[in-house]
């Protein structure tokens, strides 16, 4: 166990502690003088309207993550369990393909898809009479456009997990709920949903926790957070503030805020797991 703890100490725990320490400083990564500023970085962040906007965008990404990483895969998984039969494996394999290609390539392909003139997305919209959109350069479309790329690359993953989680509930029960005409809705509400609830909660919290990491590379390659920060989020800003603009103190303070939020979500999820979300396979 010792070498594992050593490595974790050096490359995970020490960096986290160091992030906390750096967040109390003003530093540009190269200059020899590093000024201790106490909690200034935090109070600046909290009072900064740009930071509030950043939090809003972070929430937007979480919402997209919930649709693409929870609602959509759960819906597809339910359809699969009810109707796909022996084709299940084929759907599972094909939907998973984008997940196994490198995120950088996924983003490049979508850069092409989104090209303002001649890009397949705009060409397709043109056939139904919608005029071309400059998806990645327009502040109002950049965030959802990037969010779609992240959701696209991770749909296969959440679909597979949803499929496994939901198949633990007996399909005859779903059928019973549907066949029982008048009281079908009530059966669904009072029998099926409570049974599925632990699985659904688990999938939803996973979708929330994965929402920001899942769009990271797409943001980096497609927009770098722009235009004018409109497609950034808290996780991406930690990276770009620290490693592109070398505002180490501010980036570290953001990282601490982010870790507090994630830690809360993760502890909540672990509680859910402890409450007995386990499946037989």
């Amino acid at each position: 166990m010792a070498p594992a703890l050593l490595l974790f100490g050096a490359f995970v725990l020490w960096p986290i502690a160091r992030t906390g320490w750096l967040s109390l400083h003003d530093w540009n990564l190269v200059s020899p003088d590093r000024e201790f500023v106490g909690l200034d970085n935090y109070s600046e962040l909290l009072g900064d309207p740009d930071f509030h906007r950043l939090l809003g965008r972070t929430l937007m990404y979480v919402a997209i993550g919930l649709v693409g990483g929870f609602l959509l895969p759960v819906g597809l998984a339910m359809l699969t369990l009810r109707h796909a039969g022996r084709a299940t494996g084929v759907y599972q394999t094909l939907l998973f393909v984008p997940t196994v290609i490198t995120t950088a390539v996924g983003a490049l392909v979508w850069q092409f898809m989104y090209l303002p003139s001649g890009g397949p997305v705009n060409e397709l919209l043109d056939t139904v009479g919608i005029s071309p959109v400059n998806w990645l350069k327009d502040p109002s479309t950049a965030l959802p456009a990037v969010g779609v790329v992240g959701a696209w690359q991770n749909l296969g993953f959440s679909y597979m997990i949803a499929l496994a989680g939901l198949s633990a509930v007996s399909p005859t029960l779903l059928e019973a709920a549907e066949l029982d005409g008048a009281s079908g809705w009530q059966l669904l509400r009072h029998v099926v949903l409570p049974l599925l609830m632990p699985t659904l909660l688990f999938l939803a919290t996973t979708a929330v926790l994965h929402a920001l990491p899942n769009v990271f590379v797409a943001i980096e390659i497609l927009t770098s957070g722009g235009p004018a920060g409109s497609s950034s989020n808290l996780l991406y800003d930690v990276y770009s503030n620290g490693l592109r603009f070398f505002r180490v103190g501010e980036a570290s303070a953001e990282a601490v805020v982010l870790m507090a939020l994630i830690g809360g979500a993760a502890v909540w999820q672990m509680r859910l797991i402890e409450r007995g979300v386990t499946y037989e396979r």
Partner: peptide, 19 residues
């Protein structure tokens, strides 16, 4: 260890880069 699993790796990129 389990908690570190949910910290996105990107968060430690900056201190690890410095290291």
């Amino acid at each position: 260890l389990l908690l570190t699993m949910s910290v996105p790796f990107v968060v430690v990129y900056l201190p690890n880069y410095i290291l």
